[in-house]
Design a protein around this nucleic acid. Sequence first.
DNA 1: TTAAATGTACTACTATAATAGTACAGTAGT
DNA 2: ACTACTGTACTATTATAGTAGTACATTTAA
Lengths: 123, 123
Amino acid sequence: MISLSSLSRTPIYQQIIEQILAQIACGALVPDQQLPGVRNLANDLGINPNTVVKAYTELEMNGYIYSLQGKGSFVKKRDGDNNLVSIKLEEVEKDLNILYQLGIQKSRIEEILNRVFSGGHHE
Amino acid sequence: MISLSSLSRTPIYQQIIEQILAQIACGALVPDQQLPGVRNLANDLGINPNTVVKAYTELEMNGYIYSLQGKGSFVKKRDGDNNLVSIKLEEVEKDLNILYQLGIQKSRIEEILNRVFSGGHHE
DNA sequence: TTAAATGTACTACTATAATAGTACAGTAGT
DNA sequence: ACTACTGTACTATTATAGTAGTACATTTAA
């Protein structure tokens, strides 16, 4: 369900976050569906439970899941923008500003934008 | 010429890089112009020379400046894409993919793009 | 009440990033 | 040759991020 790449230098907890986000986005995980327990997932991945906790905590702070002590962690219903969207938008804007300062052509960005947003499996 | 914000949690050497890049981009620094020496700049900013070295080294690796031992560091003529541009383009593409996965509307990005690239003081 | 699941909290270890200290080496002018 | 400037190289210190260890608290079902 979730697989780690030890070759990658992106942190374990980040890899978990990204994969869960992807599964929520593509519908593999639906609202109120229970996520694997922190110990189960940690055992499956051969890591420390607290690393999973870190991933879950961040997902919760960003409004993607909710956790109930003693019960488990579950997928949350989306309600408009959440923190992650805001953060990523800010990141993109910051990078675009730098690229603009570096004198890159606007069309270069538009090409990327069109390519990414024609992936097809949305709307 | 360069000012640091100790409030900001972006590293000192990064702040130096960004400000020099900005000055190159806006024409305040022109090709073959000499940059302040590592010790001078370090003294002005009240930091360690090696922190300036780190900034200069990274700028050199990315093709923005060149350094000659005993002579100084100088602004380099641009020749198409360099590492920084490539890196930032990759970062943007990665973030855009995430935003796409999060279900954001393409128009939201286009708004940002238009705003950033209408800053005016370029072309 | 007991047991087994769950999430939580706190501490500790480790690796890496950021900065600083000090010594070295090349260049230019005197 | 000497001096004063330049960048360079290497080591040391410090802060922070990432991960792990261990104990705690809640829920649910037997």
